[in-house]
Each structure stands twice: as C-alpha cells, then as structure tokens.
C-alpha cells in the first residue's frame, strides 16, 4: 500500500480560517488588557501611597479620629472617624437594601408572572442606571428637609440620609443579582416540591432559598462593595464632617468622599497627597477582598 498524498482540499486556509485567527488574537488582547490595566492602577496607587511611609504611625492612623492633614503646626492623619463614617453609612444602607432587594428578587423570580415580571425587571435595571450624583441631589434637596422636618433635628445631612440613599442605590443591583441566583435554581426542584403539595411560599422558603443561598450571599457582598466604594452620593448626603457617629442623625465623612473632596487641593507628592493615596489603597484592598469573597462564593455554587 502506498502512502496516500494529503488532499489539498482538506487543508485550505480560507477567509474564515484567517478571520478566526485574527479574532482570537484581538479577543486575547482585549482580555489581557483589562488585567494589565488593573495591575497598572494597583501599582500606581501603591507607589503614590507608599511614599507616606515616613509619616506612617499606625497608632495615630488607626487610633485617632483627628483627620487634619492641612494643619501647619500638627498635621495628623487619624482615619478612625472616616472608617466609622463609611462603615456606619454602608451598614445602614445594607440594613435597608438587603430586605428590600431580597424581597423584590423573590417576588420577581418566584411570584410575579408574565408581564408584571418583565416590566419589573426592566424597571429595576433602569433604577440601577441612575447616576450617583442624581441620588446625591435627591439626598441634598429632598431627604435633607424631610429629615429636618420629620425628626426635628438641626441638619438632615447625616448617616440616616446617606444610608437611605446608598441603600436605595445598592438595592437594584442586589435585586438583579439575587434574582439571577434564584433563577439559577433548577425548575425541577420547584416542580417536585409543588407536586408534594407545597404552597408557593413553602417552595420558596424550603427549597429555592436554601438552594440559592450562596448566590444570595454573593449579591449581598457585592452590594456591600458597592456601598463601600460609592463616593458622590455619600459626599453630598452625609454632611461631610469628621465625626464618630453616635446616632443616625450625626453627620459623618466617608473615606471615598474624603479623597474626592481633598485630592484636587493637595500638592502632588505632599504628605497629604500621599495620605489620600493610602486611603485609596485601603479602599482598594477592602473592595477587592469583598469582591473576591463574592466571586469565590459564586464559584462555589457552580461546583456545588
């Protein structure tokens, strides 16, 4: 038997072959560039922030509530009040957003039917697209007088105001992610439970929610990350004054808002400038950890 010569018709590199190659290279570049940009941002922030090392006194930074980087006589960089501001606002926002968004997600995914469901989904996604400055504006011009009137307090720009605003901002995105998690629960589970005589709420509570547990947790974590990193709305609605809050009506200042408000007025390379970048590193690290946790949890779902 002689060796058969390869038929050239089988090995033809035509337009489809070349365009496939070209597209895969382009897509690879696109994918890798996102990672490069993130690493670049990280390196930049770190480099700018690490110059702060010589002024770095851990006890002062994490132990003091006095953030006075512009003081001539005694510049101090205590971030305790800023951390407390961010934490209190985010915490209140989650208290508001978690029940509302989980409730909305359960309604859309499990109870609403046909048109209602479609309309609601679109509306929730529209809410997610409202720019944060608009939310800040609402906080400033609507919530502020409302809080002053209702609770008889001197100022309405406070933890309550920004927590509410932030909660409303985080709720749509959390609703969308939580609804995806509920939708990912196989319909055969619902069918099985219903055939056993479960009511819709029993199906939801005993089967769907436990099965979607991880996805729901991921939704909450992403909401926390969103709240933590939000700047403009918090800047506008929180009162922006350095305070360890003792009541929801205290004005506070958030980490993000501090950077946004002060960075433009510092001299490049000054200790103040570097201190702000240090705040940036802190925010970056925390949001990164939160998102990583959410991501790992979501991966867990796919495997589990």
């Amino acid at each position: 038997m002689t060796d058969r010569k390869a038929d050239p018709a089988v090995d033809r590199r035509d337009v489809a072959w070349w365009s496939d190659k070209a597209v895969s290279v382009l897509v690879f570049l696109g994918g890798i560039s996102a990672i490069l940009f993130i690493i670049g941002i990280f390196v930049f922030i770190t480099r700018e922030g690490f110059g702060f090392g010589e002024h770095f006194k851990a006890g002062e930074i994490f132990g003091s509530t006095r953030w006075a980087p512009t003081s001539d006589s005694n510049p101090t960089y205590g971030i305790l009040a800023l951390v407390a501001g961010t934490a209190s606002v985010t915490g209140l926002a989650m208290l508001i957003a978690v029940p509302f968004s989980l409730g909305a997600a359960i309604y859309i995914a499990e109870f609403a039917k046909g048109r209602t469901r479609e309309v609601l989904k679109v509306l929730v996604e529209m809410l997610a697209a409202i720019p944060s400055v608009v939310w800040g504006f609402i906080g400033l011009t609507i919530m502020n007088p409302l809080i002053i009137q209702t609770f008889d307090v001197p100022i309405g720009l406070c933890v309550l105001n920004s927590g509410l605003i932030l909660g409303l901002m985080a709720a749509p995105i959390m609703t969308t992610i939580a609804e995806d998690a509920l939708k990912a629960v196989p319909d055969s589970y619902r069918e099985a439970a219903e055939a056993l005589g479960a009511t819709r709420w029993q199906v939801t509570r005993r089967v769907v929610l436990p099965a979607a547990r991880q996805g729901l947790l991921a939704a909450v974590l992403l909401g926390v990350g969103r709240g933590f990193g939000e700047t403009m709305a918090v800047l506008m609605a929180s009162g922006h004054s350095i305070n360890l809050p003792t009541s929801p009506f205290d004005s506070v200042r958030a980490l993000t808002a501090t950077i946004a408000a002060e960075l433009g007025e510092t001299a490049v390379g000054s200790p103040h400038y570097q201190a702000l970048f240090m705040l940036g590193i802190l925010l970056f690290a925390v949001t990164f950890l939160i998102n990583l946790a959410a991501d790992l949890i979501v991966r867990g779902i796919r495997k589990g």
């Binding site: 589970y189 099985a192 055939a195 005589g197 436990p210």
Partner: peptide, 16 residues
Amino acid sequence: RKQVGMVFQRPNVLPL
C-alpha cells in the same frame, strides 16, 4: 396533591 404523588421523567431529588 397530598392524595396524588408524582414521579417525574428525570429524578428530581431536592438539594437536601
């Protein structure tokens, strides 16, 4: 549905 049990095409055990 209490009186009428149902078995489906694919075994649909619950994630429990």
